[in-house]
Amino acid sequence: MNIVATKKNSQEVSELLKASLAKAMTYQEYRTTVSDLVVDKKSTGTVQNEALADYTLLNNKRMKRLDKTLKFSEDIIEKIESVQRKVTWLVLTESWCGDAAQTMPVMNKLASLNPNIDFKVILRDENLELMNQFLYNGTLSIPKLIMIDDATNTVFSEWGPRPSKATQLVNDYKNTHGTLTPEFKQDLQIWYTKDKGVHTAEDLLAGLLLE
């Protein structure tokens, strides 16, 4: 599972979180930003090229579809509604990231079901100091979701860059083939479509309910 119970609560991390949260976007603000970038044929980040712009266009379509169609089981809804403590979910992302496009709508939908969860978005490349505190296997992999207990202002869990089931698929393919091919990446997107956010939601709930 990609949920990690964490004690990364040094003074440095606290200050980085405070600075990042001060400039964080809501999910709707992020969606508007991405939509505007599509019109301009651009992406987030300092690097601008046709490939990243194309990924941003595709991801905007994915997020738009998921925003409209995502539905959760009664069990997931009951669990998310039962959360009593106030928390902030802070996700680091970029518009060109395919995993982020498939999972951020799930984060937003879950957060919308409980007023105790405040979902915020920041861009990775503009917050590399914070990102470097939450690497995945030593890499800047995104999305990276940081779960913060509002009462204590401490990080209690982190998640990313993809649901545990998808991670297993990726790891198995890498072990067999050495690297991820374009064909596999397409197959992974098909997996996301068929999964309909279920494994992402289950992972996020597991992290949220950690004590």
Rank of each mutant, 00 (worst) to 15 (best):
N2A: 14
K7G: 03
E12L: 00
V13I: 12
E15K: 12
E15G: 00
E15I: 04
A19P: 07
S20H: 01
L21G: 12
A22E: 13
A24T: 06
M25R: 11
M25T: 00
S35I: 08
V38F: 04
D40Q: 15
T46P: 00
V47L: 13
E50L: 09
L52F: 12
A53V: 04
D54T: 14
Y55R: 01
Y55M: 10
L57Q: 15
N60W: 01
M63R: 07
M63W: 03
L70A: 04
F72L: 11
D75Y: 02
K79A: 14
R85D: 15
K86N: 14
K86I: 04
W89D: 08
L90K: 08
V91Q: 05
T93N: 09
T93E: 11
C97I: 05
T103C: 12
V106C: 03
M107I: 08
K109M: 10
L110Y: 05
L113P: 07
L113F: 10
N114R: 09
I117P: 02
V121Y: 05
I122G: 08
I122Y: 13
L123W: 08
D125R: 09
E129V: 04
N132A: 01
N132S: 09
Y136S: 15
Y136T: 15
I146K: 09
D150C: 05
D150G: 07
T154M: 12
F156C: 02
S157R: 06
W159L: 05
G160S: 03
R162Y: 07
K165H: 11
V170G: 05
Y173G: 08
H177F: 13
P182S: 05
E183P: 02
F184W: 04
F184D: 03
F184C: 05
D187T: 15
Q189F: 11
T193S: 15
T193V: 14
D195W: 07
A201W: 02
